[in-house]
Amino acid sequence: MLNAILHAKSGRHGEAEARTPWRETFRDSEDFITATLFERLSYLSGPTAMSILAEATRRDAGGDGAKLFGWRMAEITEIAFWPLWEDPLPEAWRKEPDVFLTLRVGDPQQVIHLIVEAKRGGAPQLQEQWCNQLRCYNDLRHEDASPDLVGYLAIGGHVPDPTAYRGAGLKQRPDTLFAIAGWEDMARGVAQALDTSAPAEARILKDMQEALTLFGYLHVKFEDTLKHMAEVDARAVTSFGAWT
């Protein structure tokens, strides 16, 4: 489906004059970018997936991205999209995180449970949503042994007050590790992984890169020669403009 949309072969949906191109619907949907990116992330080798998530969360100076994703030995063993979790509060609606992953990392091996909440564009991440999901997670019955680490990844949108959000989340579960990333950060991580990827993984990474580009997140890598170019004197630009 992704390639049909990317190459304008997916047609339209809806009725009569109101029919909308699937490409436009895909571009405007937070759920589509979440499913497209994280589904393909789970197809990658563990170390490659970790390198992307580590790079995506690198700019989150107060976060726990390095603790969650700085593993050389790693494997994504389970992934669930939009799981419905019962809320232990009376008469409360079930809660639905965007993605829930189980990762096995390190040697000796440890288990990480990772909750992912994704937002599109400038939509705010919601502190109440973080707390609600962690409260529901605490009430889950895990088939395996309890995890060694519990992580919460907020990707996309914006977090008005990261310290306050983390503090509120820690009241629900004190051992939670929090990380914040933008889709543009994910695009940078994918681009860097492409530089060193094997051919089999490169195809998956290129799919991810094209999907991110469709959503408006393109990482442009500047050549080292451009970084070291001398600064142009503004007076020279003005003189050149007058002369031409």
Rank of each mutant, 00 (worst) to 15 (best):
residue 75 E to Q: 08
residue 204 I to S: 02
residue 18 A to H: 11
residue 73 M to R: 15
residue 74 A to N: 07
residue 56 A to G: 10
residue 112 I to H: 15
residue 81 F to G: 04
residue 136 C to K: 10
residue 184 E to L: 05
residue 9 K to P: 00
residue 221 K to R: 15
residue 220 V to M: 08
residue 154 A to F: 11
residue 192 Q to H: 09
residue 8 A to N: 15
residue 41 L to S: 04
residue 170 L to I: 09
residue 196 T to D: 10
residue 49 A to F: 10
residue 208 M to Y: 03
residue 10 S to G: 13
residue 220 V to C: 04
residue 62 G to S: 10
residue 7 H to K: 11
residue 23 R to P: 02
residue 174 P to R: 10
residue 40 R to E: 09
residue 87 D to A: 14
residue 189 G to R: 01
residue 21 P to C: 02
residue 61 A to E: 12
residue 90 P to M: 06
residue 219 H to Q: 02
residue 146 S to N: 10
residue 31 D to T: 06
residue 105 V to E: 02
residue 153 L to H: 07
residue 84 L to I: 09
residue 93 W to H: 08
residue 242 A to P: 00
residue 116 V to L: 07
residue 200 A to M: 05
residue 147 P to E: 02
residue 118 A to E: 04
residue 39 E to Q: 14
residue 123 A to W: 08
residue 58 R to M: 03
residue 222 F to V: 03
residue 38 F to A: 04
residue 93 W to F: 07
residue 225 T to V: 13
residue 115 I to T: 05
residue 76 I to S: 06
residue 29 S to L: 06
residue 213 T to Q: 11
residue 207 D to M: 08
residue 183 W to M: 03
residue 137 Y to Q: 08
residue 71 W to K: 02
residue 162 P to N: 09
residue 47 P to S: 03
residue 79 I to D: 01
residue 181 A to Y: 08
residue 13 H to V: 15
residue 13 H to N: 00
residue 193 A to M: 09
residue 86 E to M: 02
residue 156 G to Q: 04
residue 240 F to T: 06
residue 236 A to G: 03
residue 226 L to M: 14
residue 42 S to T: 14
residue 27 R to I: 05
residue 68 L to P: 00
residue 151 G to A: 09
residue 29 S to Y: 04
residue 182 G to W: 08
residue 30 E to S: 03
residue 96 E to R: 15
residue 190 V to T: 12
residue 37 L to F: 15
residue 10 S to D: 12
residue 109 Q to C: 14
residue 126 L to V: 14
residue 167 G to Q: 11
residue 220 V to S: 07
residue 31 D to M: 07
residue 54 A to D: 13
residue 60 D to P: 01
residue 19 R to V: 05
residue 44 L to H: 07
residue 225 T to H: 12
residue 142 H to M: 13
residue 212 L to T: 09
residue 214 L to P: 04
